[in-house]
Computed example of a mutant assay.
Amino acid sequence: MLNAPLKPVDLVIFDCDGVLIDSEPVSARTLAETLKEAGLAMEPLDVQREFTGMTEKQMLADLTRRGITDSAAFVGRWREALYAGFKRELREIEGIGALVRGLDAHKCVASNSTIDRLDNSLGILDLWDAFAPHVFSAEMVANPKPAPDLAEHCLRTFDVAPERAVFIDDSTQGVRSAKAAGVFAIGFIGESEARVDQKATLIAAGADAVVTGVKELERLLAASMAVVG
């Protein structure tokens, strides 16, 4: 689904979780388990719907309002379970590695994740090398998504005008960040996405296009001459 024309592209900005790596099921499951241990019952799908795209700080503020105390200890327990799950289960989104390596354009990662989480997720996969050193965390800018700071940081890094870039994200925060920076926003839906209303949610957030799976994404980028072959 394309809501606006896609111009030639010099920079492709990728969110990490749910776009490059299939981390969200592991994250949602381990967070739900840690919440249950702390006395707050949430199903993994509800966790994914509520917290996808948030920074850790934003998530903790929300959980504190729901009754979670001693946030430092809570985060420590969750990170231990999360990173262990990543080591056992984490995989790239199917097909994304070939797409990334075939891009005939600048590319980078712009994530609301902490630097520590990026190191322990994308950093344990070969795909890290396709982006390094251009892996950017919200900790590197003043304000996380949905503010435009991360997108603008990417544009400055490569000296690219907003209209010559695209931002691919599976969250409303990422879509709004792109739009606030004047960048073409592509809402990405993984082929295993469990949130049935995700397409409508991304459209409502202002996505210029919504794609399901890597093949649709590749076709869209190819139309802008951003993919080799």
Rank of each mutant, 00 (worst) to 15 (best):
L217Y: 13
T52Q: 12
G174Y: 08
A151Y: 05
A205R: 15
P8N: 08
E92Q: 12
F74A: 01
A130W: 13
A105M: 06
W78V: 02
V214Y: 08
A84S: 13
M59N: 01
L40Q: 00
H153V: 02
A130F: 11
E193C: 12
G97Q: 13
T69F: 01
A185Q: 10
A130L: 15
K7Q: 10
D126K: 14
H134G: 02
E152I: 08
L6M: 08
V9T: 15
G187S: 14
A138F: 05
G229P: 05
D46T: 14
E80N: 07
A105P: 02
S71Y: 04
L35F: 07
G18D: 05
M59Y: 01
E80T: 09
A147Y: 15
V75W: 07
V141Q: 13
E139P: 15
S121P: 00
S113W: 02
R79K: 15
S111W: 04
L20A: 10
Q58R: 00
H106S: 13
R219A: 14
S171L: 06
R88D: 13
R176C: 09
R49L: 03
A151V: 15
R195I: 06
R66V: 05
A185E: 12
S171H: 09
A181N: 02
E50S: 01
S121M: 02
R156P: 01
E139S: 12
I124R: 04
R195T: 10
L118M: 02
E92A: 14
S71I: 10
N112T: 12
S27N: 03
L125S: 14
I13S: 07
F184S: 04
A161R: 13
M54Y: 09
T212V: 13
D170S: 09
G174I: 01
A142V: 05
L103Q: 10
R29F: 03
Y83T: 08
A226E: 11
L11C: 15
F51A: 04
V166C: 09
I68R: 02
D208C: 08
H106A: 11
P133C: 06
K57S: 05
R91Y: 14
V214L: 06
A132C: 08
A110N: 10
T201R: 13
T114R: 07
